[in-house]
Amino acid sequence: MSKERTSAVPAAPAYVPTDADFAFDTTIDITTDRNYASQGFWKGVFMRFFKSVRAVIGLVIIGIIIILALIGPHMNSYGYSDIQSVTDPETGKEVTARSMPPHVPWLHKLTTGESYDDPFAEETFLFGTDSMGRDLWTRVWYGARVSLLIAFVTIFIDMIIGMSFGLISGFFGGVADAVMQRFVEVANSIPRLVIVGVLATFMPKGIVLVIVALLLTEWIGMSKIARAEMLKIKGQEYIMASRTLGAGNWRIIFIDILPNTIGPIITQMMFSIPTAIFTEAFLSFVGVGIMLPQCSVGSLIEDGFNNITTLPYQIVPPILVLAFLMLAFNFVGDGLREALAPRIEDM
């Protein structure tokens, strides 16, 4: 068996070595292993996240909406509950800017060559005004601010409740888990509308009711995720290792396991936020949510919906904001889930 190998042709080295190069290299320390991969975990996650076009679009949309929600209401001098009116110089009567379509003087001049000849000739209402004469631009961004605030606050509290519940339930297992899971099932089986109905009988309608309703229902999803993560992680060898070192239950839950659940939990938050925004919108829409003169995206849609046949422009901005918010958070959630997915760099 001695066939000639032809493919292993020696390649000529570019460098021509000298005799001195053939001494032993004594500078190499072979007893210490200095190898490691240079990339950190979160760096990889970020890079994978930003490689996803959808996730980046989602992030940009969320960013724009948040910025507008913060500065939008201050971009003009109108308050969100101020009814815009002027005194007509000719008749001396108070004229209210009721139900005006989008009203932009420079744009009007540009397209028609003439100035407005109404009493608000110099005023800009980019989205128009509502039937009470309030500036819709201000109200939409103010409403977005309220909606986002409600969503963030409730989801944050829900995360804490749901995570603690799920982690504890999953960790201890057995009877504790069984009891806690039956409780979850019961809580989960009550329709949200029933909860809202019951709440509305002894609570004043408004922002607090919306928050309480969200708190009562949204933690369940979180707790399920947290429990599933716990069940997955608690049998891992690194948890056993902590046990053999004598770590107590609380140390294992909150120091060893909790940091490992952050990824899926954040992802779940990204999916919960649009649900919360939508629920808030829905509750406001059916009239148990935000009360006038305050507004949220939902109550604005309700207003617009009431006038949809006569004044269709009123419903467009709040609906677009709602739609973009929901879409964008879902994009970001998806992107995060992909980026966090455990993977071996494919080689």
Binding site: P13, A14, Y15, P17, F22, F24, I30
Partner: peptide
């Protein structure tokens, strides 16, 4: 490599032939 030479960190070694195979 406990037999590392100085040249090892300068140039890549070519395939040296020992026998036909």
């Amino acid at each position: 490599n406990r037999y590392a030479l100085k040249i090892d960190s300068i140039a890549e070694p070519p395939m040296f032939q020992i026998t036909k195979t």
